[in-house]
Design a protein around this nucleic acid. Sequence first.
DNA 1: AAACTTTATCGTAGAATTACGATAAAAATA
DNA 2: TATTTTTATCGTAATTCTACGATAAAGTTT
Lengths: 106, 106
Amino acid sequence: MAITKKSIFNQQYNDVSDFGKALAHPARVMILEILVAENRCVSDLTERIPLAQSTISQHLKELKKHGLIDTEIVGKQNFYCINQSRYTELQSALTQMLKKVMIQTP
Amino acid sequence: MAITKKSIFNQQYNDVSDFGKALAHPARVMILEILVAENRCVSDLTERIPLAQSTISQHLKELKKHGLIDTEIVGKQNFYCINQSRYTELQSALTQMLKKVMIQTP
DNA sequence: AAACTTTATCGTAGAATTACGATAAAAATA
DNA sequence: TATTTTTATCGTAATTCTACGATAAAGTTT
């Protein structure tokens, strides 16, 4: 039973953990950082990140699953970009959670 | 080959993804939030989070693996607390990464 | 000492993740 | 039209994750 029991946790906890999952691999962190600077196609990302093209595609799919990025097909290339509203949504859930911690921090 | 190729990514990316992994389950987010408010023993956490005691222990082990929490044995109870320095370290790596995104946000 | 409490660990099982090569589909180029 | 480029998807394999019950170990209580 490796299915996370999401249903027993409220929205806020799931939002934070969704963002966590998206950030839970260095390649995905790198992808997000690259896409923040500029929209990029898969071959651009594959050049910059030393993983197989199919693996990069898989990571993009994972980010898309959490709604963090969108895609636009231009000719034979697929350009990816940050989904700002979803990003902001998850970011604020995380920031709120971190703030609570900051209070405790001396 | 499900081993994440951590070695090919730099420290900053790995720090962010480590924090991501720690936050990648709602139960762990909840645990961190509870421990920020007050140090707690396992039975306290098991009362608050609707998962089996052994599962809670596993999540605590995961958080400990990433250095986010420490433990202190008092009598027959094990109290857990936030490891502030590690927490701050990972938090700042994440915050720095988020800041880059904020610049882009309109 | 016997019974109880607390918690880590073991064993197990199913699901998800990470990784790659191979291949298919679609567009661009020669 | 044939070839090349680009990218998603399939197949596969190893590893990790999530979850629980059972149990062991260590302390507390009766």
